[in-house]
Computed example of a mutant assay.
Amino acid sequence: MKMVVMNKNARPFAALLAASALLLAAGCGGADGAAATPGQPGQLSVVASFYPFQFVAERVAGPHARVTSLTQPGAEPHDLELTPRQVASVTTADLVVYERTFQAAVDEAVDQSGNQHVLDTATVVPLQPLGAAGEHAEEEHGEGHAEEEHEHGGLDPHVWLDPTQMATITAAVRDQLTALDPDHAADYRTSAAALDAELATLDQEFRTGLAGCERQAFITTHTAFGYLAARYGLTQIGITGLSPDAEPSPARIAEVQQEAQEHGVTTIFSETLVSPAIAEAIAGDLGLATDVLDPVEGITGSSRGQDYVAVMRSNLAALQKANGCS
């Protein structure tokens, strides 16, 4: 069921959108993300909300589409704000790929755009309730966690960290592109099949690599790995919650320290797009190691890999080392 978000700012937003679309059509210069430069003649225009969906769209579309992301490399996607040009790109795109409830600004832009060619990935990969998939289920995250649950509708958006769910999204993108551009349907099917095979190999590597571990629990600052944990029989213990830059309370830090000792945890994980200070502080108090577990929300020069598959393999290696996997 499509959910339409209306608020008191709808009319000003719609006016901004219309004006922005005119500026875009007129070729107004700029470099603020999607639609900053035109594609080649005959190419589709695909707008992805952030990196994982950009990765899939680029791999499936190949040379037949120009794919742009609304979230720039190095930017934290959770709190994305759109420029007028980006809002306009949502209106004029041949296809928009996004996940409802993850980025409120994208949801609003889609709702106000009138664009009928949108793929909400949550319609093909249903989101699970927070804490339902691979997360240590205690009421320990506090008031900040409750606010996050309300903001995200009580659902965990991080489906892309399960390679099998990425395969489902790949098939949906293939079908959308085929419907839009049937002349290149064979190419889309071939590209999607190649990516699907790569994702199946990645899934097998995780299943094999995490099958014989000394411990199943892992602690991470960003509670983004519920789907991954559920898929591969692990238990995620989040320090904060969905927001990667939230500050844990002193009580929560004490609880995490206790849980680390109870589970024999050796490593506290941080990520690439936010400060590792919290992980380092907790690890330092307990004499534990720190490492990176990347939620693959964007690729930067500090990412341990140049694309989704490479970064996921680095995540596998980090989990194997931390959890004593043979």
Rank of each mutant, 00 (worst) to 15 (best):
V124F: 08
G62E: 08
G29A: 15
D79N: 12
G74T: 04
V67L: 11
L22P: 00
L24N: 04
A109W: 06
F13T: 02
A26W: 11
A57Y: 04
H78V: 00
H117Y: 09
A122E: 07
M6Q: 13
G30C: 03
Q43A: 03
G134Q: 11
A105Q: 13
V97K: 12
H136M: 05
A19Y: 07
G62K: 08
K8N: 12
Q103N: 04
G30E: 10
D120E: 08
A31F: 07
G42V: 02
S113L: 04
A10T: 15
T121G: 07
S20E: 07
A15G: 01
V47W: 06
H141K: 12
P63V: 02
C28G: 09
T68F: 04
P52L: 03
N7F: 02
L44A: 04
A61S: 15
P38S: 10
S113E: 11
D79R: 06
S89N: 07
L82I: 03
T101A: 05
A26K: 13
H136R: 11
A21Y: 01
V118L: 10
P12Q: 09
F53K: 00
P52D: 12
A31Q: 13
D111A: 12
Q43P: 09
S20D: 09
L44Y: 09
T68D: 15
V5W: 12
A10P: 00
T37A: 14
A10E: 13
L16M: 12
F13S: 01
H117C: 01
T71L: 11
V56I: 15
G134N: 08
R11W: 08
R85W: 02
T92A: 13
P41E: 15
V125S: 08
A65Q: 08
A65R: 03
M6P: 00
L22M: 08
T83W: 10
T121Q: 08
A35S: 13
F13M: 13
T123F: 03
R11Q: 13
H145L: 01
A31S: 14
T83C: 11
D79T: 05
A21L: 06
Q54L: 09
D79A: 10
V4M: 14
E138W: 05
F53Y: 15
G39I: 00
T83M: 10
Q40T: 02
K8H: 07
E58A: 04
L130H: 00
T71S: 14
E139P: 06
G131E: 04
E81Q: 14
V87H: 08
G144Y: 01
P126W: 09
A122H: 10
T91H: 10
L23Y: 07
E139C: 00
A105S: 15
N115P: 03
A19F: 06
K8R: 15
L119G: 03
A21D: 13
N7G: 15
A19I: 00
V87G: 03
A61Q: 10
H64K: 13
G142M: 10
E135Q: 12
Q116A: 15
A26C: 07
V125E: 13
P63R: 14
T37E: 14
T68E: 15
V46L: 09
P84F: 00
L119T: 01
F50Y: 15
A14C: 07
S49I: 02
V106K: 05
E99D: 10
V106E: 12
V56L: 11
M6T: 14
P126I: 02
E143Y: 09
L16W: 05
T92I: 03
M3N: 07
L23H: 12
Q112D: 06
V124H: 11
M3I: 13
M6C: 06
P63A: 09
T101M: 11
L24M: 04
S45H: 14
